[in-house]
Write a protein that binds this DNA or RNA. Structure first.
Lengths: 234, 234
DNA sequence: CACACCGAAACATCCGAGGTCTTCTGCAGG
DNA sequence: CCTGCAGAAGACCTCGGATGTTTCGGTGTG
């Protein structure tokens, strides 16, 4: 096994064992390199890798620190991973979201504070009558994130956030806008909001199920017709 | 933004845009470095980072390749991330699993082939009467993975696999064995298997719900009593 | 007390030199 | 013609040092 991979494991162990706590600063490059028995170049590769998944945070001129290691931070890195998936796996991701979103919405109906519910309602009115695709995506993302956050489970929130990442969402919307489904989506968002505001978890769950299933159906149609347009492709 | 991060994005874009397809080989280090306008050292940091999340695969003496980019491979990297979480967030992860597992089990009851079901049944008898903790964990992991795989959704399967990673699972089992709940777990596994074999999705879903909820309850008690043992800690 | 300057500390980047591993090639033998 | 074994080439691995950039903290002045 390459020394760099060994270094990654060593640093990982140092964090898991508690030798390095969240927020702690690592020894300087030269020092840590000597301690782990490798060159600075190789150590830097290890640090960079751990940096990509948000475990470490390097600040030039200052030092290298362990991040807070909170679920939202670490799962954030999954967004990066999801970006790599092509259209043919989008439906699989959406299927998972179809499982999680209703559950999160039901939990939100039980746990969200009045203040958060008010903020959620405010989002409904923020869209213009003829919004751009970018505005639609941003509003949709914000709406569902607020609900996921309201579930009270940071892991669930981050996971949904990643699954519904910008890339996937943008593709979905591209399909939707072409069929004028904006109005129906807005109606469903309103229904979900009202169910949460009334603290009716089962109603909220049902509306969320309907909502995601609808998105899935539309996307399936969009991908199907795309296949018809270019059936021999790839 | 550091040149290394730019390089990561460049390579990412090359893959997403299709310039580099899964399985393709990257230009050699020196060549790619010149093309991206940086040194080999910095490029190696970028490659190493993308390697950690299983996007690239470097083979010494051969070259650097793009992986298959299949969901299971990319989500595999999440196991690495989950390893960093401490006990206080285990319940959040388990709550998500509580949502996904019943759904996956229900899907498995609909989709699993007779052959796969037979393999699943075989796992039930593989445990000895007084198994070691390691054997328990391995068998449990294998059983649930087989079901997740039977859902037919690779994303769902990989996600469950990561959430129920070795670390989390081991901790759970450590709590369970101390209270002699092995027999009950085995009964529930058998019930889940029989529901899947009978192709009864709702029954399978219910047993899975009961199973995970039971694990969650036991874990909650275990963590609770641990707190009582050392209430002032941290 | 507030602000600007300066130097130390730490990371960022680059370069070039060996080392090691894998693969392919060419040749001899069956 | 097929097989098997050096040998060479290609590509990544590791290292160490030199130089640039950024940040932090102390210092001195108004």
């Amino acid at each position: 096994m390459p020394v760099t991979d060994v270094a990654i494991d060593k640093i990982k162990d140092m964090i898991i064992s508690g030798e390095l706590a969240p927020g702690d600063r690592l020894p300087k490059e030269a020092e840590l390199a000597q301690r782990l028995g490798l060159s600075r170049s190789s150590l830097r590769e290890a640090v960079k890798a751990l940096c990509l998944i948000r475990v470490l945070d390097v600040r030039q001129g200052d030092g290298t620190y362990v991040t807070s290691l909170e679920p939202n931070l670490l799962l954030d890195a999954m967004t990066f991973v999801v970006d790599f998936h092509r259209d043919d796996t989008v439906l699989d991701f959406l299927a998972v979201r179809r499982i999680l979103e209703p559950a999160a919405t039901a939990m939100a109906a039980l746990h969200m504070s009045d203040e958060d519910i008010a903020e959620l309602g405010a989002m409904l009115g923020e869209l213009e009558d003829a919004p751009t695709v970018e505005a639609l995506v941003a509003n949709d993302l914000q709406f569902h994130r607020k609900i996921a956050d309201g579930s009270g489970n940071p892991v669930l929130c981050s996971l949904l956030d990643s699954l519904s990442g910008p890339t996937t969402r943008a593709r979905v919307w591209r399909g939707l806008t072409q069929e004028g489904a904006v109005a129906k989506t807005r109606e469903q968002h309103t229904a979900i909001y009202e169910a949460i505001a009334a603290h009716e978890p089962e109603l909220a769950r049902s509306w969320a199920t309907v909502h995601v299933a609808g998105v899935e159906q539309w996307l399936r149609n969009a991908l199907g017709s795309a296949d018809e347009d270019a059936p021999a492709a790839s």
